[in-house]
Amino acid sequence: MFRRLQPDDSSATIYFDGRAIRCRPGESVAAALLAAGVDRFRTTPVGGAGRMPYCMIGVCFDCLVEIDGQADRQACLVPVADGMTVRSQDGTGRFGIQ
């Protein structure tokens, strides 16, 4: 869906639903996921519909994912950190509740 203009500055790795994704340190988790072709960040709690970011500026909340175990994080506002674990947020999100 997207490509990087400079593919070679991807020196960090995050894990999205178990898959390793190379990304640029300091960029947002949302940008890293979109660059890696992810088009389903979460499913909605009411209808179970897939969503991906709409606004990229912290307004729409359709980029909500679970980051390092914490649900409801806005992927477009959180910078990537090497080794970060990201999960798509299904429905309400898990909030540590099984």
């Binding site: 490509r3 990087r4 947002s28 088009d39 991906m52 970011p53 990229m56």
Partner: peptide
Amino acid sequence: WTLPGVMGAGAVQTLMKASGIVPDR
């Protein structure tokens, strides 16, 4: 408008500025 693949035009501009990412489809 809620389908994945629909975004704001400004959102894609943000991707360009913030991460040097552009659409390839």
